[in-house]
Design a protein around this nucleic acid. Structure first.
Lengths: 223, 223
DNA sequence: TAGATTGTTAATCGATTAACAATC
DNA sequence: TAGATTGTTAATCGATTAACAATC
């Protein structure tokens, strides 16, 4: 139908399953680099990452072509490629709402910094917490009261909801008012959001449920 | 090939994507029941759960047939069906290793109890924590030293690893020695396990990465 | 009966895997 | 060159969606 010239591709779509694995590869590459490994094959890198070599190569193929046939991948180079790619994707400020045990754990979670996320705001409605300083991976952040939520969220790109269930929808609404379009929630409640908002929902109970209900393999032989 | 009589089906395999959603439906049904709603259509229940009605009906079809055509689902009945099904699947004891902020959050996570998981053991290698009592949803549990890990894990079906990365593999090995075959880990490290062990890995950084890299929809019209 | 809604089938979509030509 | 390993294609698998016959 269309005789248009193909649009100047910014970056073609990378499957979300692939995006989820890229940070794993990067993490493994960091370890290899620290141990002085210069080159690695897709088979070895895949084994260290807990995936198959075919999957690893397919994943990398979505962002480019970085290996040498017959040789493998240069660890430093591939590390820098993934760092750049993930970095360009991210460099995002995060506001965490709800600073109980879970919020606290998230705020100090080293993986956030490793991947270029910065915890820019912490909000809690408990007056005993407001004003307290929390050490995040990238610096100290003080806990603020809910009346500053919108102001602070307006400076962030991602909102994390770590409140009790009952507060989740209301917090979500405020984050959206502040302009946030990407939300990660740990509340078991399902959030109602406009179409242009992306919600990622981690339900810890559901994770256990899946573990508990997966068919068990009865054979035990193998690596 | 086989002329055998079909094997007495214990419970045919339910896709893991479906198992992940069943607890959501149950949660929504609990809310409906509390508000006195007697009957609900797949369309409404699906909307409340954040899925499509086709997906909801397909999901339910894997565990049976519980609605009335032209009418919908009886809220109490469907609630009890899902409770039973998930309950039979679960009723499992959990040991949590690593009782920092994250481990603490998990130990007191209400969703565990709601789904029939009981936190039976807490392990940490910090002497200042050992002996402390943590209130879980189902009772008080005291934090034990690592030398009791295997003994305690032997009484559990699921192990949760909430330790720093460096300890994760060693903890994992000990859980496996104790006989645990289902592991949920929050460490960013990839775990090496025998074939008969199921590992579920929650990488919070990766979750953010996916959120940050998903193509944004640029149109904003809609519900 | 007429309208509504389920349960199920078949089509579609996306992700994984196997295999191999390209090439270092 | 011969052996090794990538990047990519095509086949497979599993999950989602649309549509509708069954039936309340």
């Amino acid at each position: 139908m269309s005789l248009h010239i193909a649009p100047k591709r910014t970056r073609s779509v990378v499957p979300s399953a692939t995006v989820q694995r890229l940070p794993i590869y990067l993490h493994v590459l960091s370890g290899l680099r620290d141990r002085g490994v210069a080159t690695i094959s897709s088979a070895d890198l895949a084994a260290d990452s807990g995936v198959t070599s075919a999957k690893l190569r397919k994943d990398l193929s979505f962002i480019g072509s970085f290996g040498r046939r017959g040789v493998g991948y240069d660890v430093d180079y591939l590390h820098s490629v993934l760092t750049d790619w993930l970095g360009v994707q991210q460099e995002m400020a995060v506001v965490i709402v709800g600073v109980g045990n879970l919020g606290h754990a998230l705020a100090s979670y080293p993986g956030f910094i490793q991947r270029g996320f910065a915890v820019e705001g912490l909000i809690d409605n408990d007056p005993r917490l407001v004003g307290q300083i929390v050490q995040t991976g990238r610096g100290a952040v003080s806990i603020e009261a809910p009346d500053r939520l919108i102001e602070i969220a307006a400076r962030c790109q991602i909102g994390v909801i770590a409140t009790p269930d009952v507060a989740a929808q209301s917090v979500c609404d405020h984050l959206i008012i502040a302009g946030i379009r990407d939300i990660l929630t740990f509340a078991s409640r399902v959030l109602v959001v406009p179409d242009d908002v992306q919600v990622r929902h981690i339900d810890l109970g559901a994770e256990l449920a899946v573990l508990a209900s997966r068919p068990r393999r009865m054979t035990a032989v193998s690596a």
